[in-house]
C-alpha cells in the first residue's frame, strides 16, 4: 500500500508545467545561436524589423524556417510513433515498421536515379538535381509502402502482430532495393541520398514548412476526436469489440493518420525515425497514470527534442554540422534503454 502511494505521488510530482517554458527558451536559443556569427543584438534588430540585409537573410530565411520545419517534423514523427505503438500494441513500433521510411527512401532513390535524365543532361552540374521535389516524392513513397502493408495485412486478418511482421518484411525488401540502386549507380547523386537518409534539417526553407503545415493542421484537428479510440485500440480486439468499439474501422483511421503524418515528415527531413520511437515512451514516463497527458506531451516533446537535437548538431559540428538524425539516434539510444528497463 505504501509502495503504491509513493509511486502515485512520484508520478504526480513529475513537473509537466516546466516543459512549456523550457520549450520556449529552447526556441529562442535556436534562433539566437548558430554557425553564422550573429550577435544577440543583431538578431534582436532583425526580429524588431531592422538589421542588416545579411542578418535578416540568415534569421528569417534560414534559421526560423529551419526551426519551424523541425518543430512540425518532430510533432509528426512523435505522434505517428505514438499512434503506431498504440495500434500495434508494440512498444518498439515507429514509422519504420510500417515500411514508411523505407518506402520513402526507395522512392527518393528511384526519383534521383532517373531525374538526372529528365531535368538536366549535363552530369557535371550535380547541384541542379531537383531536390525541391524530394518531399513530394518521399511522401508518395511512404504512403505507397504504408498502403501496401495495410492491404497485405487486411487480406488476412488485421491482427497487430501480422501487420508488424508484414511491415518489417516489406520494409526490409524496400530498403534492400534502395541500397542496391545506390550501390549500383555510383555517381554524385549518392551525396544527396546519403544526406537525405541521415535525416537532416539543413537548408530547409519556408516551402518545407508550407509543405508540412496542411498535414500538421489536419492531424491536430482530428486528434482530439481520436482520444477515446486511442484508449480502446490499446486493448485486444475481442475486448475492445465487446465494449462496443468498432475496432477495424478505427484501426484503419488511426493507421492512415499515422502514415500521413510520418510520410509527409519523412519526405521533408528524411527518416529521423528515432523520434517516433522514443518520444512516446518519454511522454508516457512523464505522464505516469495521467492518461490524458500522453498525447499533448508527445506533441510537445516531439517539437522540443527535434529542436534541441538540431541545435546541438548545428553547434557541435561547426561548419560541418551533424544531421539531426544522427544526433537523435546517438542521444536517444541511452534514453530509450533507460526507459525500456521500466517496461516489464
Amino acid at each position: 500500500m505504501t509502495g503504491l502511494t509513493v509511486a502515485a505521488r512520484q508520478s504526480l510530482d513529475r513537473p509537466i508545467w516546466i516543459i512549456l517554458p523550457l520549450a520556449l527558451i529552447l526556441i529562442v536559443l535556436a534562433v539566437f545561436l548558430g554557425v553564422a556569427d550573429l550577435s544577440p543584438a543583431m538578431v534582436l534588430d532583425v526580429l524588431t524589423g531592422h538589421g542588416s540585409e545579411n542578418a535578416r537573410l540568415i534569421i528569417t530565411d534560414i534559421r526560423i524556417p529551419r526551426i519551424a520545419t523541425g518543430i512540425l517534423a518532430g510533432i509528426h514523427f512523435a505522434v505517428a510513433g505514438l499512434l503506431l505503438q498504440t495500434i500495434t500494441r508494440n512498444p518498439l513500433a515507429d514509422p519504420s515498421i510500417m515500411g514508411i521510411s523505407q518506402g520513402a527512401t526507395l522512392a527518393v532513390t528511384i526519383f534521383l536515379f532517373f531525374a538526372v535524365y529528365w531535368f538536366d543532361s549535363d552530369p557535371h552540374k550535380v547541384y541542379q538535381l531537383p531536390v525541391a521535389w524530394l518531399p513530394a516524392v518521399g511522401l508518395f513513397g511512404g504512403l505507397a509502402a504504408g498502403a501496401v502493408i495495410f492491404l497485405l495485412a487486411r487480406r488476412h486478418d488485421l491482427g497487430p502482430l501480422r501487420i508488424t511482421l508484414c511491415g518489417i518484411a516489406v520494409g526490409a525488401v524496400l530498403h534492400a532495393l534502395a541500397m542496391g540502386l545506390i550501390a549500383g549507380w555510383g555517381s554524385a547523386r549518392i551525396e544527396i541520398v546519403l544526406q537525405w537518409l541521415s535525416g537532416s534539417l539543413y537548408a530547409r526553407s519556408w516551402e518545407h514548412v508550407l509543405f508540412l503545415l496542411p498535414f500538421t493542421v489536419a492531424g491536430l484537428l482530428v486528434l482530439p476526436f481520436l482520444r477515446r479510440s486511442i484508449d480502446l485500440l490499446r486493448f485486444e480486439a475481442p475486448v475492445a469489440l465487446s465494449f462496443g468499439f468498432p475496432y477495424r474501422a478505427q484501426f484503419t483511421v488511426v493507421l492512415m493518420i499515422a502514415c500521413g503524418l510520418a510520410a509527409s515528415a519523412v519526405g521533408v527531413t528524411g527518416p529521423i525515425i528515432f523520434i517516433g520511437l522514443i518520444v512516446p515512451h518519454l511522454a508516457r514516463f512523464i505522464a505516469g497514470s495521467r492518461f490524458n497527458l500522453v498525447l499533448p506531451l508527445t506533441l510537445l516533446l516531439g517539437a522540443v527534442i527535434v529542436t534541441a537535437g538540431d541545435l546541438i548538431g548545428r553547434l557541435a559540428g561547426g561548419a560541418e554540422e551533424i544531421p539531426i538524425g544522427v544526433v537523435s539516434a546517438i542521444g536517444g539510444a541511452p534514453i530509450l534503454l533507460a526507459l525500456l528497463r521500466r517496461i516489464r
Partner: peptide, 20 residues
Amino acid sequence: RRDLAKRLSFLPQQPAAPDE
C-alpha cells in the same frame, strides 16, 4: 457493435490490459 454491447458483454479468457 455498440447496440449489442448495451445488451451483452463478453469477458475473454485472461484479457490483457494496457500498461499504466
